[in-house]
């Protein structure tokens, strides 16, 4: 398991996302509360998105979350560090989501767009 912190990886991810004005503009109408829940550690992170921008990052699953993303710590870290997109682990059962697929599709879209090819 990696020793990097999930919350610091999330903070870095948000910074990169907010710096990409094109993707940010495409997500302008999106509001969502997401919880990232590793299956093998106690560290949990959450984020609140309003009008496409991440307005809050927490160390717990947000109340009334719209989407819960569950996977191993390493897979979640790889996604936040843009080393992997979520669709692969999702397709092959390493990552599961709970909540409307539309939210996950947006999340997948953002990561895929930000991922270096």
């Amino acid at each position: 398991m990696s020793t990097s912190s999930l919350s610091s990886a999330l903070a870095a991810f948000v910074e990169i996302y907010h710096a990409d004005t094109k993707v940010l503009a495409e997500m302008a109408g999106w509001s969502c509360r997401i919880g990232l829940v590793p299956s093998d550690t106690d560290e949990v992170v959450g984020l609140k998105i309003e009008g496409g921008r991440v307005t809050q990052v927490t160390d717990h699953v947000p109340d009334d979350a719209d989407l819960l993303v569950r996977s191993s710590y390493d897979v979640l870290l790889d996604i936040l560090k843009l080393r992997s997109d979520p669709s692969g682990p999702y397709l092959f059962g390493e990552l599961t989501v709970e909540g409307p697929e539309a939210h996950f599709v947006r999340l997948d879209y953002i990561v895929t767009k930000l991922c270096p090819q």
């Binding site: 919880g35 699953v61 947000p62 979350a65 719209d66 989407l67 819960l68 709970e98 909540g99 409307p100």
Partner: peptide
């Protein structure tokens, strides 16, 4: 049997 605090719009 749903996640803690999960909701829909």
């Amino acid at each position: 049997e749903r996640g803690p605090g999960l909701r829909t719009a």
